[in-house]
Amino acid sequence: MDTEEIVKDILTEDFQNVDSFKMDKIKHSVETESLTVAFNGREAISDVSIKIRGNAVTAIIGPSGCGKSTFLRSLNFMHDLTPGAKVTGTIKIHNKDINEYDITEVRRKVGMVFQKPNPFPTMSIYDNVVAGLIMNKRYKKSRLNEIVEKSLILAGLWEESKDRLKVSALALSGGQQQRLCIARTLAVDPEIILFDEPTSALDPISTSAIEETLTKLKKEYTIVIVTHNMQQAARVSDFTAYFFLGKLIELGKTRTIFTSPKEKLTEDYITGRFG
């Protein structure tokens, strides 16, 4: 059985029924072992061990302050900037410890889309998409044009922006700006893309456009999405992880988590008894 078949298998079978042999065979894109992140000595997440599958969407849900974003941000060294942050435990990307990579290499492999659209305000749409490329090495103009078109198409923004690529990115609406941010992330060709509540600041139409994009992206990328919206988690994700008070409570197939979770805590949250 090759990996692809096993992945398919897992997606169709019930998660709990997959035997350990199959589980070990799968290439995990991201893996953490007893990951702990503390800010000024206070632990935001503690002892999180999780395996995130490649070519699938994994949603992270949980009440506010449960450490979802903290977990996500630790995957591409975003805590580096925060004074007082301390990350312990191991993070592996493609079975290789994150510390063995160069920090900018990790960030190029692991893209991130943030909660609020944050295009570079002094740049055009075109320049925004190529920013991550041209600031690392030189590219041919024709190659850049190709990448811009490909990224914008994949992010679902090409039709709306192809005639005004040289216009300031701020001329776009909020939803379009967020899709531009996705295109910008795609342009550097990452393998894993982290989404930190990417639609919480957007209207329903933009939200569904982005959700559509997510589903398209899963063929080529590994996606981890933090969301407050449980319907969204149910709609777009293959796997769901439930965080509570800084701990990973349960990880499983989305269908299982939402219909018959193993943990009482998960069930309470899903059914809206708290949170």
Binding site: L81, N118, M135
Partner: peptide, 29 residues
Amino acid sequence: VPHSLREAALALGIPRWKTTLRIVLRTAS
């Protein structure tokens, strides 16, 4: 200059000094 802009640049794999010079400084120019 909002912190989110620095994060956006760093998340693209742009080194910190380039982020400062070509994104942050330019925005504040």
